[in-house]
Every structure is written in C-alpha cells, then in structure tokens.
Amino acid sequence: MPKARETVLEIDLNALEHNYRYLRSKVDQTVKMMAVVKAFGYGSDVVAIAKKLTGLGVDYLAVAYTSEGVSLRKAGIELPIMVLHPQSYNFEEIINNCLEPSLYSEFVLKEFIATAKKLKQKHYPVHIKFNTGLNRLGFSEKETGTLKELLTGTDAVKAASFFSHLAASEDWKEREFTLEQIYTFKRIASQLVDALGYRPLLHICNTSGILNYPEAAFDMVRTGIGLYGFGNEQQEDQRLQPIGTLKTIISQIHELQKGDSVGYNRAFIASKPTKTATLPIGHADGINRQYGNGRAGVIVNGNYAPIIGNVCMDMLMIDITGIECEEGDEVIIFGGPQHATAFAEKGNTISYELITGISQRVKRVIVEK
C-alpha cells in the first residue's frame, strides 16, 4: 500500500473474507449466517462491507435502526435485512423498503401488525426476540401465551425467526449462565413452534457463541465483531484479521526545551529537551481524550511514540524524541503493528467502542488485492 498522505481508515476486504470463512467453518454448512453491519459496518464502510459479504454468500444482514437498512437498500443491497431495534414510528418505512423488523414486546408487535394490515400485507416476515437473560429487549417466557395469540390471530405477519442474545458467551466463568440461556431459548421456541404449526429459523449465537458454543448454532448464527477481526479473547484474535488500519501523518515537528509545555492546559511540560510531532487527528475523529497524557501511543516508522498532553478536537501531539522521522511521514494509530484491542485497553475501553467511534469525516480507503 502507498503511504498515507492524510488521515485515513484503510479497510481490507481480504481480511473480511478471511474472517467470514473462518467463522463459517465453525458451524455446519447447513447453518445460515447473518452478518451484523450496524454502525456503518462497525465503523468501517457499510456499503463496501455489505457488497463483499453478498458476494461471499452471506444469508442475512442485520442493522440496528431503520435508517441504516434504508441506506443499504438505496445502495442496491437486495439481501434480507433485519432491523434489530426498530421503532413503531418507522414501521411503514420498514415495509416500504422490504426490511424485516425484530419485534421484542407486545406493544411493538401489535403496532407492526396494525401497520402491516393497513398496508395490506400478508405473511410479512418478522423476527421475534426473546429475553433469556440479557435484559435489554425481548419477550419474557411468561409472555409466550400472548405471543401465540397475536401470531396465530393474524395473517398479516409471519415469524421468519425466533432469536435471543447471549449475555456473556465470551466469558467461561459465566458458562452456566450461558447454557441456561440456551436451554431457556430452546424451551420457549419449542412451545411456540408447536402452537404455530411451522418452524421459523432459530438463532442465538453471536461471534463468541459461534466460537464457544457451536452446538447452539441452531438454524442460523449472527456475527458482528468477528467479521471485523476481533474474537473477544486473545487466542481468537490471533486467528482473525482486523480489517481496519487507522493512519495519519505528521503535520509539524517541534523542538522543546526543558520547561516548555504542549497543548491545552499545559498538560505536558518537558522535563528535558524533547522532540514532538503534531498529528491531524483528534477527539472529533474518535481518538478521545482518554488516550492522552501518555496513556496510549502510536507507531512512527516502526517505533512507539506516546501521546502527550491533552488530545485536542482535531489534533494530538506525540513524543518522537529519538525517532528518525520527518513532517509528512505516515503514522499508524491502530492496525498492523498495533492491535486495536491493545490501543483500546490503554484508554480503559474495548475494541467495539474504539472502532465504531471513528468519525465519518475520516476518509475510508478500500483495500482489496
């Protein structure tokens, strides 16, 4: 790859393909795969990601909100798309764009049935979510009777799938809790399948579920973070390939004398002669203040350079004392020699927050050999 000449997020579609094929290999080939592409494809480029996954043969896409699904339709994506957290206000838009809602409460199910009837729909595909322990969204087991009545009492909608979400599938200390979630889901789904007289797709496994509980793959699995190169534990991180590399350049180099300060609030004061570089990236781009004042660093010509002082909105400063470099040289924030998980941990957070927080003003560059 040519060296960066501005702040860019490089997105490697070959790495995406590697991750997809690796995760696909963990479950039986008859099991369908749903790719979660919410939040701009976990902070990458959702259209490029969706098109690549379509070509790889993924069965479903999932987004968080209606607007995300609509943007994919406008980009020409024709795969089935599930909306994980729809609001009743958007139900007509969902139907008009052939999106498939996750319905998680009596209120939203009734509202969607009413909208589907109004738009003269028949057997419109919906996904019914059960709360088996995460306690965010979903029908409880005690609501199974109500759910039966609503689903059997109309032909406006038809359950395309029943699903739930594992709370701690990456944590072996919570194995008993996870197994109880899987058992509860199986019990609820069995009751409803008997009542409906047909079997929707069943799915509960997320990325860590695929890796740690492949026996619970059922009919379909969902993967989000794994596609982007993160396995929630070091061993799996080594088998996956992060798709994103965040790069920038050196804008200016300064020679500081002892006692000189850097940045707002004089947060860094040189204790000796120090060489610094200013980079055109800041907290408005997703590299937040928590990474400043020596907590995290970047890679300059193969060398680690700590971030010094407070991160600014559009800039941050690094200590390059002893590093051979020039203005205009490439700098790697994360990716390549510095795993995003390692960078995130220095800011006391997780890779999810870091990669999804990269601002849309950062230019995306697609890499595919």
Rank of each mutant, 00 (worst) to 15 (best):
M1E: 11
P2C: 00
K3M: 13
L9K: 07
L9Y: 08
E10A: 07
E10K: 12
E10V: 12
L13E: 06
N14H: 08
E17M: 04
N19G: 06
Y20D: 01
R21E: 15
Y22S: 11
R24M: 07
M34V: 04
V36D: 05
Y42Q: 05
G43S: 11
V47S: 03
V47E: 00
Y60L: 04
A64G: 06
G69H: 01
L72N: 01
G76Y: 01
G76L: 01
V83H: 03
Q87H: 10
Y89W: 11
N96G: 10
N96M: 10
N97Y: 07
C98I: 05
F112N: 03
I113Y: 11
T115Y: 06
A116M: 14
K117A: 05
Y124D: 06
P125G: 01
V126A: 03
T132H: 02
N135G: 08
E141G: 04
E143P: 01
T152M: 00
D155E: 15
V157G: 11
F163R: 02
A167Y: 08
D171H: 12
K173L: 09
L179V: 00
T184E: 13
T184F: 05
Q191E: 12
L192F: 13
V193K: 04
D194M: 14
D194T: 15
Y198N: 08
S208E: 12
G209T: 09
E215H: 05
F218Q: 07
M220R: 09
D237R: 06
L240P: 07
P242N: 09
I250P: 04
H254P: 07
E255V: 15
K258E: 15
G259I: 14
G259C: 14
Y264W: 06
A270L: 14
T276S: 03
A277K: 04
P280V: 03
I281S: 04
I281G: 02
N288Q: 13
N288W: 13
G292D: 08
R295M: 13
V298S: 10
N301Q: 13
N303F: 12
I308Q: 07
V311Q: 01
M315R: 09
M317S: 14
G322C: 10
E324F: 11
G336K: 10
T349D: 14
T349N: 10
T349C: 15
I350V: 13
I350T: 12
K363G: 03
I366D: 05
I366W: 09
K369N: 03
